[in-house]
Write a protein that binds this DNA or RNA. Structure first.
Lengths: 214, 214
DNA sequence: AAAGCTATTACCAAATTCGGTAGTTGTTTG
DNA sequence: CAAACAACTACCGAATTTGGTAATAGCTTT
């Protein structure tokens, strides 16, 4: 057949044509749509029904990241490969957050682009080495800290603190745990002591920031 | 010269030998150390002084992830490539958190292994497609929510909420902002309304979780 | 068996928070 | 100019939180 069907969104006409040409020359890929902007992205995709979308970022009207968001909402399983000149953290992370499945830079070779389209179609996450490193670095940073700070809370105390973080009052916690209001208070006192705080807000803030909850 | 110097840690003797053989056959790589465990990892690395470490996970005594942590502490700039059979989230994320610069599975081809060593050495982050997808997926999930949820807080309200998150009481906030206690209350009422909450704890939890503060 | 820890309940008094209502002032916007 | 909004102040009553002290029961460790 015509292989992986690709749709391109990029405001650079000649680049779009080059890619279309490239894809047409292979037997594993085919081009099913080529658009200069994302203004009618939903319609466009409905019409050409691609397997993979190649998406630029800098486009007039709706930028590529917004475009990805729109596509994600309407076509949750469609794979999207970002193909752009931007390699700054902000754009990269925004694209991933929006739901892009891969991110390669425009200085990549034709072969790399084809390989990336194929990879993203097959459930991989192709990235330019530098991009991959950025992602890994950032990922490492925001990965939940090991809860070395257990603060030695007992099981019950954690339970109470958890409910507190969920916004429950003493009374509600008592009801939920089927214990007395005064028991909840006793636990809270212990928790305050162990966390070195003296109010609900401080306890909640510390619990969340120390990744104990939520 | 002898190209990229590689040290291998893997308890499978024959696999280690295969890799050593493979590396010796190329001009771009050389093997400088081959070890069955991480028990003397610091010494080992000091002796052979590699550019890249290829690290298995399942090893007796000290596992590969612990090994990575040790290496990271002593040799912050040494690149480490995980090379293992494990493709479960827990191991993958733990390895990244520990400081691995790449993660490929043992079912990869020789060529892919060589490419990965080269890539990790050159500042990339080689990953098996499935691993990359896992990372991207998880990354997407824990990436800070877009602050689309600004909740339209006014400048003053943000200020008040910020102090609340820091654990201050109404009275303390009033004092800090040099306004009346009742004014603080007025702001709080607005904040509650905008955040759709009705207690300090809920406000704090929402503020932190929505990345509005701290 | 004594000591230590966890979970539980209880009461008091002071401090703090919450919801509602109401008003002034100054700035921005249609 | 009128309307809308942000910042500010004020009071009331009810609900909630906080700190202190005290006690019982079960379970584990020494």
């Amino acid at each position: 057949m015509n292989g992986i069907k690709v749709a391109i969104f990029d405001d650079n006409d000649s680049l779009r044509d080059s890619i279309a040409m490239l894809l047409s020359d292979t037997k594993d890929f085919s081009i099913c749509g080529s658009y200069a902007h994302c203004l009618h992205v939903t319609n466009d995709i409905n019409k050409c029904n691609p397997d993979v979308v190649v998406m630029d970022i800098d486009m007039p009207g709706i930028n590529g990241i917004e475009g990805v968001k729109i596509i994600r909402e309407k076509f949750p399983y469609l794979q999207i490969l970002m193909f752009t000149v931007f390699d700054n953290d902000e754009k990269v992370f925004a694209a991933i957050k929006a739901g892009a499945g891969g991110y390669i830079l425009k200085n990549a070779s034709s072969q790399q682009l084809l390989a990336a389209i194929s990879e993203v179609y097959n459930g991989g996450a192709p990235m330019t080495p530098g991009i991959a490193r950025k992602v890994l670095q950032q990922f490492k940073n925001i990965l939940p800290e090991e809860t070395k700070d257990n603060y030695d809370l007992s099981h019950r105390e954690k339970e109470v603190l958890g409910l507190l973080v969920d916004g429950l009052s003493y009374k509600m916690i008592a009801s939920k745990l089927e214990i007395t209001y005064d028991t909840v208070r006793a636990h809270m006192k212990k928790i305050y002591e162990k966390l070195h705080v003296s109010s609900m807000t401080e306890a909640v803030a510390k619990a969340i920031n120390r990744k104990l909850f939520s």
